[in-house]
């Protein structure tokens, strides 16, 4: 399974990846505004239907001095994506190669994927009469053609590298091992929500970069699994139970009536 490894210690915040993403996916520019600190240099503030990748600017303290540390917002391409579990028609699907892709021809626009995603990634085109769900596709078209995603291709410092997920995990572990003081000893995405295909390394705690660190280690699908599995049991069980109960009650009523009538005219229905 293909994946991306993002090492924020190598990122210089040039936002070349953001631009390359827009260019490859032909996304329009959007009007942005300066917003309140501490992230004043960041642009834009958040992902949107027009921006599938954002470099976040975070002022953090490392080794007793302040410096910029750059977080990366984009689809995590979970191994068991909750958006794909949520989608009633498989408009969002996990591909064997790794990317989670979207097929608008099936999509109802129910936006359950947006609710289900723990990373707030899927974005809806609120301003369109014929809207779509949008998100990073890990450049699935490029990957299918044997190319690497645009963001990894353009990154000048190799902060974003593309490869097989197992290889990248080994590489990340290696980097931590070689430079134990330079990294937080955690590969973000290795186990989060059952594992993702975008892995992050950082030199500051991940919550400083705005990443959620309270996510479960199991896929969110596990939370709905039981409820979905009992459905056929409930269906058949209820049919049998309703039949049995109605039979018992009917018998009781009939017997009661017979007794009242002095059991003279039994057997009417």
């Amino acid at each position: 399974m293909k994946a991306l490894l993002i090492d924020v210690t190598r990122c210089v915040g040039c936002r070349g990846c953001q631009v390359a993403c827009k260019e490859w996916n032909e996304l329009p520019a959007e009007k942005t505004r300066f917003f309140a600190s501490p992230k004043g240099y960041q642009n834009p503030r958040d992902l949107s239907s027009k921006t599938w990748r954002v470099v976040t600017y975070n002022e953090a303290q490392t080794n007793g001095r302040f410096e910029w540390v750059f977080g990366h917002l984009q689809c995590f391409h979970c191994i068991e994506p909750s958006c794909a579990t949520a989608c009633p028609v498989s408009a969002l699907q996990k591909t064997k190669e790794g990317p989670v892709v979207y097929d608008p021809d099936r999509c109802l626009g129910c936006r359950y994927c947006q609710l289900a995603c723990p990373f707030l990634v899927p974005r809806f085109e609120w301003d369109k009469a014929i809207p779509k769900i949008t998100k990073c596709t890990m450049c699935a078209d490029r990957v299918a053609a044997g190319e690497e995603p645009a963001c990894a291709k353009v990154c000048p410092t190799d902060a974003i590298v593309f490869g097989e997920r197992e290889d990248l995990i080994a590489e990340a572990e290696n980097r931590i091992h070689r430079n134990p003081r330079g990294y937080v000893h955690h590969i973000y995405g290795k186990d989060e929500v059952g594992g993702t295909c975008v892995l992050h390394l950082s030199n500051v705690p991940f919550e400083v970069l705005g990443y959620r660190t309270d996510l479960p280690k199991i896929s969110l699908r596990e939370y709905t699994k039981t409820a979905m599995q009992v459905v056929p049991h409930v269906k058949i069980g209820l049919a049998v139970a309703l039949g049995a109960v109605s039979w018992v009650i009917q018998r009781r009523i009939r017997n009661g009536r017979d007794e009242k009538n002095g059991s003279s005219s039994g057997g009417e229905s």
Binding site: T85, P88, V89, S90, R106, C107, G109, R221, A227
Partner: peptide, 25 residues
Amino acid sequence: DLGRPWNIWKPVFNWQHESPMFEVS
């Protein structure tokens, strides 16, 4: 409420029984 209501019938043919939304529909 649906963004693409013209696809409202799609669950009839695209079966995704892991989704609670599929059961709802």
